[in-house]
Design a protein around this nucleic acid. Structure first.
Lengths: 241, 241
DNA sequence: AGGCTAATGTCAGTCGCTGACATGAGACAA
DNA sequence: TTGTCTCATGTCAGCGACTGACATTAGCCT
């Protein structure tokens, strides 16, 4: 029962007073159990085929209790995504201020992919995250929500970029424009990866590098060359410039 | 079955047999009434504040009947969007084959905006469309669905572009990449327009022109100039190249 | 130990949506 | 016209995601 571990707040608990509190631990355990059970069910049985009652029953609590821990069924599905996105924002802010915006974005994503494993480890193994990602991409209603969340995130990113460059997001559209274009490419990357057969993190990273490198040439004039022959980690030229 | 079901479809009815059919007309009228009533309610009262029962009651039919005409509450909200998107695809296909991909996309959107009024007129006045667009952008669940639909549409567009250039969409990522980047910019445009105070079609068109012209410079290196001073229809330089 | 509060369970109700069944209003032939 | 025949509609029952209200219970504090 003791098991210590204390805080371990999964989300963003400001933890004003480090009170292990016997009661708190129980809540934390329940939340974790619900989260884990839900993800497991979503991945194996499918999101739509999983009812909230199923999740609650798997943990041994009432449906009402589930809704006291999560605002809705969807939120559980995005719990890990939340962490990774927060992690990305940290990576982005850590970029040196002299990097051009697009380059900063590029590096931040790659850094992020390189350290997702550790970022997610507190909740579940990396594989669970990757599988859930695929589930999201293949479940229409989740995909829709995912896109809206991405859009909101992009707004946030644009703000960071604008600050880096000392611009006003509302006066200069460029931050939002780059982020939107960049986000679009990432979306394609994620989609292609999730429908492919290589479900490893390395595969995703390689695809990201490849597509980010190609977007520059893709935007230019007309395409007459067959398909730029490069594959993996070749640090080829970046977007136009 | 007889009657060939034929007509019914208000959207793209090839109308194989011009049979007025007394019964058919009634169905058509009901569908129109439901659509109009729904849009009216969504716009005035808000999407979430409008129940399907409200819509059905406003038309004088049962809730069950509503669901016999529309697969769900959301579909009604996107009925006009469907028409406009189909219209865009037509515009795109009408573009001369020698235009570079990005330019074709650009012209297609602008052509589309120039003729939306006529395209939508068969269902409702333009204003209703614009207002519904804003409602979609400001209603989280609708926005999410809208983004997913856009993504699906982009897949379609990428296919058209690939065909224009004689490429294989699955072998060459460039079609999907340009479309994604382009779509991202349009998304920003739509969002900015819908949150601004100028809800005219002209305003939307102007914004589109402006942002499409800026995305090229925005992607390049770092931004040190304050905010490229151009405004409306200036046919400025395209994306880099 | 006893009281206070917070976590949980139970119940009822709303809303989107669906299958099943009965009925009535058009289409069509005799 | 009459009589089928079918197709649109209404009614009813039920599921699943939620939510508010109330009762119960378990941790916390003195």
């Amino acid at each position: 029962m003791k098991t210590a571990t204390a805080a371990a707040a999964p989300q963003q608990a400001p933890a004003p007073a480090p009170r292990p509190g016997l009661r708190e631990r129980k809540k934390q355990r329940t939340r974790d159990a619900l989260l884990r059970a839900a993800l497991e069910l979503f991945i194996t049985r499918g999101y739509e085929q999983t009812t909230v009652d199923d999740i609650a029953r798997a943990v041994g609590v009432s449906q009402r209790t589930f809704f006291r821990y999560f605002p809705g069924k969807e939120e559980v599905a995005f719990a890990m995504q939340d962490m990774v996105e927060a992690h990305f924002m940290t990576s982005l802010r850590a970029r040196p201020a002299d990097e051009p915006p697009l380059e900063a974005l590029r590096r931040a994503v790659l850094d992020c992919w390189d350290s997702v494993r550790e970022a997610v480890a507190s909740i579940a193994p990396l594989e669970l995250y990757l599988r859930m990602f695929r589930t999201i991409e293949s479940t229409p209603v989740l995909l829709a929500t995912h896109l809206r969340r991405s859009m909101e995130k992009e707004e946030h990113i644009a703000a960071v970029l604008a600050e880096r460059e000392g611009l006003d997001v509302d006066a200069d559209p460029r931050p939002r424009l780059v982020v939107a274009a960049f986000g679009g490419v990432l979306r394609v990357t994620g989609r292609l990866w999730s429908t492919g057969e290589d479900l490893t993190l390395e595969g995703l990273r390689a695809l990201t590098v490849r597509y980010l490198d190609q977007v520059g040439t893709a935007l230019a004039g007309s395409w007459r060359t067959p398909d730029p022959p490069d594959r993996a980690g070749a640090p080829a030229g970046r977007a136009d410039a």
